[in-house]
């Protein structure tokens, strides 16, 4: 029992990180049908910027966190403004492949910038409330894991409120359902697109900061997190918020349990095997709706 619980804690913590990244994918996808392959790099920026602000800038953790989230959000806005918008704003729009390559180019670029400015070393942030592990039924949990899980819940609640209760949130939701119709009723879809990148970047940055005390942070930590987050988003059904959360947690748990009870050698493959099987059986993900193509 203690063993299972230990695996579950590990899976939940890692799963929550995947979920936050997947949520970022979902937000942008909803607003623009763009898959942002630089999503993982937002995680990198969040963590690395906090480290830089604390060690280089001498800021206390409490100030460094909001500053780093803001920096990440700005990077997200810049990405939309200078790389994505010029491509999809063109008459005729841009193909899926073009956008994929632009965002992959952006991820390589961002990694390059972080590497040149902040170095290639890995860094650690201090845990928010100490390092002393908590004993639960024989399994031991890092207090930081509670922070990750707690903030993930808060974020989900905040997003639910934002999309359900605020005018702008509803506008974003409307855009995701039907872009043209949204434009017709006077929604500034370009602003929605811009906001989705800012919001999604902020989410990624936050994930990077929360997890840096557990996973450490490094200029290239975003690559695998981005891919797993993408897998989680697809697993849950692209564009579905609850789907992203469920997908992320499910992948995290599956990886931990597979490593624990089967073999740790193929742990990394678990996420991708699951995703292939799910796609073969249910091509639109676990919680995704079926879509039809307009001729």
């Amino acid at each position: 029992m203690a063993e299972f619980l230990q695996f579950a804690f590990s899976g939940l913590t890692v799963g929550a990180i995947y979920a936050l990244v997947a949520l970022g994918f979902a937000l942008i996808y909803n607003a623009s049908h763009v898959i942002n392959f630089a999503q993982g790099e937002f995680v990198t920026i969040g963590g690395m910027a906090t480290v830089a602000l604390m060690t280089g800038g001498g800021l206390p953790l409490l100030l460094a966190i909001p500053a780093a989230v803001m920096i990440t959000a700005l990077v997200g806005l810049a990405l939309e403004k200078f790389a994505v918008e010029p491509a999809i704003g063109r008459p005729g729009g841009a193909s899926v492949v073009t956008i994929i390559i632009i965002t992959i180019g952006a991820s390589i670029f961002i990694r390059g910038v972080v590497q040149v400015t902040l170095g290639k070393d890995f860094h650690r942030l201090p845990a928010f409330s100490g390092e002393a592990p908590i004993d639960i039924l024989g399994a031991r949990l890092q207090p930081q894991s509670l922070w990750v899980l707690g903030v993930t819940l808060l974020v989900v609640a905040a997003l639910w409120w934002f999309f359900g209760r605020t005018r702008f949130g509803k506008a974003m939701l409307a855009t995701s359902h039907n872009r043209l119709a949204a434009q017709l009723v006077g929604i500034d879809t370009r602003l929605v697109l811009l906001a989705s990148f800012g919001l999604s970047a902020a989410l990624g940055g936050l994930a990077g900061i929360l997890t840096a005390p557990i996973t450490l942070t490094k200029y290239d930590i975003g690559i695998m997190l981005g891919l797993k987050g993408f897998a989680a988003a697809i697993l849950g059904g692209l564009g579905s918020g609850p789907g992203a959360i469920v997908g992320g947690i499910a992948l995290g748990l599956a990886e931990a349990l597979a490593a624990g009870y089967i073999s740790s050698a193929y742990k990394d493959a678990v996420a991708f095997i699951i995703i292939l099987v799910v796609l073969f059986v249910r091509p639109s993900g676990l919680l995704g709706g079926r879509s039809t193509e307009r001729v």
């Binding site: 790389a83 632009i102 992959i104 180019g105 952006a106 390589i108 670029f109 390059g112 590497q115």
Partner: peptide, 11 residues
């Protein structure tokens, strides 16, 4: 600066 430049070229 290799990676930075490569990413920029792609974009």
């Amino acid at each position: 600066y290799e990676h930075l430049a490569f990413g920029a070229v792609l974009i």
